[in-house]
Amino acid sequence: MRHLIDIKDLSIQEIDELIKVANDIIAHPDKYSEKCHNKKLATLFFEPSTRTRLSFEAAMMELGGNVIGFSSASSSSTAKGESVSDTIRTVGCYSDIIAMRHPKEGAPLVASIKSTVPIINAGDGGHNHPTQTLTDLLTIYREKQRLDNLTIGLCGDLKFGRTVHSLVTAMSQYKNIKFVLISPEELKIPEYLKEGVLEKNNIEYIQTDSIEDSIAKLDILYMTRVQRERFFNEEDYLRLKDYYILDKEKLKNAKDDLCIMHPLPRVNEISTEVDDDPRAAYFRQVRYGKYIRMALILKLLEIE
């Protein structure tokens, strides 16, 4: 039985295979509409989320399966003090596969140790969010027709932004990837990623605090939101939340085939005037998220 806790759990070949299946689902949705007949997905969201939970639920429904679950810790037995392991063992009796989000880092790993069904990490605090990464990889593939030879700009909260951490880890496996890390000093990428992933794999990267200075060389611009829930100090959040706002003016020097991505939800880091620009891929990215989750559910349930 396989789980997906960290994007590193998947080999590059497995990621490529998931992307291949997702592409096939996009091309032939009818072929997959009954693949999960009589299967149940439990979505255990100990922390609020709209997009990820609905994406998982829509994915399972489009595979012909059913969905059970809860959408906040207060409506689960956690409110009574139940441990993650006990909740998972219980839910495993009702479902075939579990997607869980938890505010504590490492909670899905704890869940996977005792689980009798596959666990998908749907986000654990500021740590990992592997299905967002798979979404991002499918988006890059669909928009650029390749996953190698790319210069990727990551902008905003690179410290707490788990989507950024997983994406850096995953893309570092592909050939000739360069990163431009755009953030204020306080939100720079953690040392463990710089040492353990970028430097270890000899990946070329630069750190800067300016979008304008670096936008012309980018193939991908991945914007992120500064997340209030990751700050202990409201003052720091207010000071940093509007540090970057992508607008038409800043895009003037960008490549014609730049792909602008964002894991969403957006607050104001991308001006709405950018939404109609054909380079804005973030709403297409949402759609790709459902397809890659369909491919992942099939893989973990070992359904051909």
Binding site: P103, E105, V110
Partner: peptide
């Protein structure tokens, strides 16, 4: 020592550390 770690709220868990470097 990470206050966001699951071990901070579920204290019966073993404290496991891995040599990464």
């Amino acid at each position: 020592k990470n206050p966001r770690c699951i071990t901070s709220s579920e204290q019966e868990l073993d404290q496991i550390f891995v040599l990464t470097d």
